[in-house]
Amino acid sequence: MLTKEQIAEIKELKDICEKVEGYELKLNFDMLENRNEENKEDFFHYEDGKLVGFLGSYYFGRKVELCGMVHPDYRRKGIFANLLEAGIEESRKRKAKSVLLNAPASSQSAKDFLKNIPCTYAFSEHQMKWHKTELMEDTSISLRTYDYAKDKEVEIQLDVLGFGMEEEDARAYVETIKEQDAQQRMIIEVDGKVAGKIRVSEMDGEAWIYGFVVFPELRGKGIGRRALSKVVKREQEKGFLVFLDVEAKNARALKLYESCGFKSYQSQDYYEI
C-alpha cells in the first residue's frame, strides 16, 4: 500500500510534467490509493531525497498497463528505461500475457523514448468530458449497488462478452478491484433484470466512469444511453465533472457517449511491449 506521502509526491511530479508538456498522464489514482501490499506494482526513483521518476503498473487479469514519468530536469539519464525494465521484469514474474505502455498522444518526449525500445503501436483511447446537455429519464432503468456474492459471476460474464476478456483474466480482475473503496460498482437492471454494469470513481472533484457494458443481446435498445444518462445526471448533481475513456476504434461506443454530451479532449496511445 502506498503512503499518503508517496501519493502526494506522485501527484506533485505529475503536475510538473503535465505543466511543461501540456498533456495529461493516465496514472489511475483510484488504483494507486488501493494497492495490495503483497504485490510490487509501483517503482520510484529519488535523487537527493526528491522523487524524479515514477512508473505505475496496472493489472487487469493477465494484462498489465504501464504508465510513468520523469521530471523534465532529469531526463536522458536512463531513469525511465530502468523503471520500465523493473516494471517489465515484475510482469514476467507474475506471468502477464500482455504488457502495454501507455503514453499521452501529444507527448513528444514519449515519442522520442519509444523510438528506442522494442514496441508496437496497439491502439489509441479518447478521454472524454461531459458537457451539459439534455439527459434521458427512464424509470424502467435502475442502478443498484454491486453485491460481490450475488453479482460476481454476472460481472465475469459481462467482462468476457463485453470486453473480450478470457474468463481466467476476468476472474482475476474481479478480485483485483474488489477492495477498491474509491470505486462505486453498480449493476444496471431493466424491469428488475440484470442488463449490464458500470463503475464510477469519485476523486478530487472528478467522476470517472469505467467498466460500462451491456449484454450484447440487449444492445441497440437504448439501455446503455439511458443507464449512462442516469449515472451522469447523478454525478453532475453531486457537483462532479464527469469523464470516461473509450477506445478510438470503438465507433459504436463513441457515438453513444457523444449522444449523451461527452466530447473528446485528448488521447492516449498504447504500445505493446
Rank of each mutant, 00 (worst) to 15 (best):
219 R>D: 03
201 S>A: 15
122 A>T: 06
252 R>V: 15
101 L>G: 07
181 D>C: 14
26 K>N: 14
146 Y>K: 06
216 P>F: 04
184 Q>E: 13
146 Y>R: 07
20 V>H: 01
172 A>F: 13
176 T>R: 14
226 R>K: 06
200 V>I: 13
260 C>V: 15
64 V>R: 00
134 E>R: 03
48 D>K: 03
27 L>I: 08
19 K>L: 10
89 E>V: 06
64 V>Y: 00
144 R>P: 01
189 E>S: 13
81 A>L: 10
155 E>Q: 15
224 G>M: 05
41 E>W: 05
86 A>D: 12
13 L>W: 00
104 P>V: 03
105 A>M: 12
116 N>V: 02
243 F>C: 06
118 P>L: 05
254 L>H: 14
246 V>A: 05
14 K>Y: 01
222 G>K: 01
118 P>E: 11
50 K>L: 03
223 I>Q: 06
136 M>E: 11
100 L>Y: 06
35 R>A: 11
128 M>I: 04
265 Y>N: 11
242 V>Q: 02
76 R>K: 14
180 Q>M: 15
91 S>M: 04
239 G>K: 00
37 E>V: 13
93 K>S: 03
51 L>I: 00
160 V>M: 13
34 N>C: 10
74 Y>R: 00
129 K>S: 12
12 E>M: 06
202 E>I: 09
193 K>E: 15
137 E>H: 12
148 Y>L: 10
105 A>S: 15
131 H>R: 11
251 A>E: 14
257 Y>G: 05
23 Y>K: 11
130 W>P: 03
144 R>T: 03
211 G>H: 03
268 Q>G: 09
103 A>R: 04
155 E>H: 15
23 Y>R: 06
90 E>A: 10
147 D>I: 08
70 V>C: 00
86 A>H: 10
235 E>Q: 12
19 K>Y: 12
100 L>D: 04
245 D>K: 08
271 Y>E: 03
16 I>M: 00
196 G>C: 14
239 G>T: 01
137 E>K: 15
271 Y>W: 11
89 E>T: 12
157 Q>I: 13
33 E>D: 09
237 E>N: 12
12 E>R: 07
209 I>V: 03
106 S>G: 13
165 M>A: 09
150 K>T: 10
220 G>S: 02
169 D>N: 08
